[in-house]
Design a binder for these strands. Structure first.
Lengths: 153, 153
DNA sequence: TAGTTATAGTTTCATTTGTAACCAACTGCA
DNA sequence: TGCAGTTGGTTACAAATGAAACTATAACTA
């Protein structure tokens, strides 16, 4: 290959650069999961994340969904608009605060959830299967530490 | 908080779900780095990645840049258009193949590179500083294993 | 060497995403 | 009350992104 090196400039080795590796691994994995449900259920990643949060915490407001998914409120608003239109999420208005919405999955939403969640878990298992049990434990521990403080469990 | 649980539906715990954690950590880190140079140098993430690759491998074609950055060729084409227009990358035509471009950083490109690369490295150090030395080693090892085959070093 | 197929790169167009402005409802306080 | 500031959520517009079509060159094949 006709390439010269420039050691004097100390160029970054992208393929050993952690932020880059993280981004590749993360995108590859997320895309693999998304491929499972995107075509089949016409569901975007953001929509699925909203559904996943509502599956765990019924009655959240849009802002709370945004907090828990680490998405910004506009993205959540758009995802909710589609999910409500598709009859997957029900939305009514908070009794004591008319600005706030009270969200939850509909029966149709649960049906999709119960199909997608196991697939997602399966993909996670496949990812971990590439690692030794010891490494799996370290990865969990390390990611917990690297999660920004405002998204810790 | 007025939320009910639905254990019968086995909802995903997003904050313990590896693909989700990866995506949060990756986005947070990449954004932190991007903030360093985006405003200062009017440089997008994709543009920086192209520059980083050209810093290491002088004379690559656009397709080879796309391979090494794991970006698609349209994104690379656009990034290159901006970089060339800004005088940060030079592009001439391959002697034996008039379709191919031969790319490299200009003096101005190197100047920016030599400012941004150390900042990026510093951010990587800050990320690793949150981990014990033992964990740092495991993380490197684990990410190498998780990198898709077509992007291994 | 004509005709086909493949490759490098760009352009076009539709979709997605992000930012800022916006509206409506709530809160605090004089 | 009534006005200032805040918060929940949507809308509008601009920038980024992706898929497919397109141009030009090169390679292969009969």
């Amino acid at each position: 290959m006709p390439t010269r090196r420039h050691p004097d400039h100390a160029p970054l080795e992208l393929e050993r650069f952690l932020p880059y590796q993280l981004s590749i691994v993360s995108n590859t994995v997320s895309q693999a999961i998304a491929d499972d449900y995107q075509a089949r259920h016409d569901l975007s990643v953001t929509e699925w994340r909203v559904m996943a949060v509502l599956a765990r915490f019924d009655g959240l407001s849009a802002r709370e969904v945004a907090e828990r998914t680490a998405m910004d409120k506009v993205a959540v608003s758009r995802a909710l608009a589609r999910l409500v239109a598709a009859g997957r999420v029900r939305r009514h208005i908070h009794a004591n605060d008319k600005r706030r919405s009270v969200l939850g999955l509909t029966a149709a939403g649960w049906k999709i959830h119960d199909e997608v969640a196991p697939m997602a878990r399966q993909r996670e298992r496949e990812l971990l299967a590439r690692l030794a049990p010891e490494e799996q434990a370290w990865l969990r521990c390390i990611l917990d530490k690297l999660m920004p403080d405002d998204h810790e469990g």
